[in-house]
Write a protein that binds this DNA or RNA. Structure first.
Lengths: 118, 118
DNA sequence: CGGGATCCAGGGCGATACTG
DNA sequence: CAGTATCGCCCTGGATCCCG
């Protein structure tokens, strides 16, 4: 493996920076089942404000992971969808999600052990 | 798959939050080859200050991913190493890194297309 | 409904300097 | 060498208001 993983200027950092925003991964996964309008995304996700969702989608678009479309006949309607590139990121994201599903309680246990409940 | 991936309060968020810090993933991968002292880590990583490295290691310890040891005979010497739990995260991290290695140029191309060089 | 404009709070990151 | 203490910047996240 020639990934040279941990160097600060390594290309792997590019992806880690992508995941360095709270909502990026969440929104990406919320788009996995197909295009969605912002209001749908907010329903699916829960707990994300309109403004933050917009910002997140903007970032994802900027990185070529998400595409924004408005039907020609319904200019007021807006849809976001994963680009082919964005779809390729779902695999690694699933790997991370699966890890959390499997080891999440261990992390939480470590946290509680670190700060004992008074 | 019952991951319920994108919900805001899903367990997957736990891992995404772990990766939501700039240096967490980098430091974890820097520890993959075995225990290391802070000065070694800084050499391996490059571009990280002593303070930020300390903070990052503190976070990783708090989440049970990293262990800190000082040899009984050399109290001044400090070593950090991955815990078994932390080691299990290397796999998903590699998946992300491999993705960057494969698609990094596409992301960069999208970025440049978004903000045309003057 | 989409999303821009503000204002604000919190925290990560960085540089520097200082203590064992 | 390890770690802490400051100080400051800037960005994200969050709430609110407003416009097309």
């Amino acid at each position: 493996m020639t990934t040279d993983a941990f160097l600060a200027d390594c290309r792997a950092r590019l992806a880690f920076d992508l995941l360095a925003n709270t909502w990026n991964a969440v929104v990406l996964r919320a788009l996995r089942d197909g295009p969605a309008r912002p209001v749908e995304l907010r329903e699916r996700i829960g707990g994300i404000s309109s403004k933050v969702l917009t910002e997140t989608l903007r970032r994802l678009r900027f990185n070529g992971l998400v595409d924004r479309r408005t039907p020609p006949d319904r200019p007021s309607r807006v849809e976001y969808r994963l680009t082919p590139l964005g779809r390729t990121l779902l695999g690694p994201l699933d790997a991370v999600g699966a890890w959390a599903f499997e080891h999440g309680d261990e992390v939480m246990a470590a946290q509680e052990a670190a700060c004992p409940r008074e």
